[in-house]
Amino acid sequence: MAEAAQLKAETSSQPGSATAALRQTMVERQLRTFDVTDLPLLRRFLTVPREIFLPHDIAPLAYSDLALTLVHENGRPARSLLPPLVLARLLQDADIRETDRVLDIGGGTFYSSALLSPLAREIVALEDDSRLAATARSYLQFIGAENVRVEAGPLAAGVPGAAPFDVIVIQGAVEAGLDRLFEQLTPNGRLLAIARSEPDAGWAVTRFDRSGGAPAGARALFDAAAPVLEGFEKAPGFVF
């Protein structure tokens, strides 16, 4: 409990933080109870104001345990954001180090990249919606995340010009289409996404590892669900 007291003292001393109490509650009641124990990561969740990465209509839900949806200007859904507790466990299980280069895929306005900014050497954030990508750039600039670069393009294509990456994080579900991303990992890199280990299995955050440039297996880490991201759909089977 000494760690919890230390974190509380740090966040309460931050000036001008109107939502510090809400972030503290999120960390204590959602993240810690979901086995998120990494102190540097918890400090980021206490420090980074999630509401500035959300449109005004859903900003009041910034610290809820809900999956929030960003929409296009035409009203159609653009991106489903992972609940904070799922995002926190996913990032913790990625074992991101200060020397790592990270590809962050499908994060909408990339609150996730703001969280990771001081925890990794470099982050490339990829969205397929150019409007979301432009919005993310402005938010990340505001928060001072200078080591984050935002790219717009097909999610499953990755960013080969910026590869290799030590870690690839996909913030949504995948059924297929990971081949090009595996090629962009370092020889001992890892990729995390929501996937099924078997066709009839449930959805779970799954870690795919490489060792010496070869596949080293996949591990289902914890149950989670999200929409299948565009480009990662399984090809439809033949229908008579």
Rank of each mutant, 00 (worst) to 15 (best):
G202W: 05
A235M: 06
I194N: 02
E183Y: 06
G202E: 10
L181V: 06
E183R: 15
G202Q: 08
S211D: 14
E175I: 01
P199Q: 08
A218N: 02
A201P: 06
R190Q: 14
R190D: 04
E230L: 09
G213Q: 11
F208G: 02
D209R: 15
L191D: 12
P187A: 15
R196F: 09
V205D: 05
L221E: 08
G213F: 11
E183W: 05
E233F: 00
E233S: 01
F182M: 12
A226R: 02
E175T: 04
T186C: 05
E183L: 15
K234P: 00
A220H: 03
A235F: 07
D209C: 13
F182W: 11
A195K: 11
L229K: 01
R219L: 11
R190Y: 02
S197M: 10
G231V: 01
E233N: 05
A176T: 05
A176M: 00
G177A: 12
L178Y: 04
K234G: 05
W203K: 09
F222I: 09
A214T: 14
V174N: 00
R207H: 08
E198F: 06
P199T: 10
A218G: 05
I194Y: 03
F222L: 12
E175N: 04
A220R: 07
W203Y: 14
G231W: 00
A235S: 08
K234N: 09
F208N: 04
A220L: 01
P187H: 15
A218R: 13
A195G: 04
A216Y: 06
K234C: 03
D200G: 06
Q184N: 11
A214G: 02
L185F: 03
A235G: 03
F222M: 07
G217D: 05
E175W: 02
A224S: 08
L178H: 03
A225T: 15
L185E: 02
F232T: 05
W203D: 13
G231L: 01
R210F: 07
D179W: 11
P187S: 15
L229N: 00
F232A: 07
D179A: 14
A195T: 08
G217R: 02
A214E: 15
L178A: 04
P227T: 12
G212A: 12
G217C: 06
T186W: 00
V205Y: 09
L192W: 11
A214H: 15
R196W: 08
E230T: 10
W203M: 12
A226D: 00
V174Q: 00
Q184V: 14
G177W: 10
A193F: 12
N188L: 03
V174F: 00
A195W: 08
P215D: 01
R196A: 05
L185S: 07
R180H: 13
A195M: 12
T186N: 02
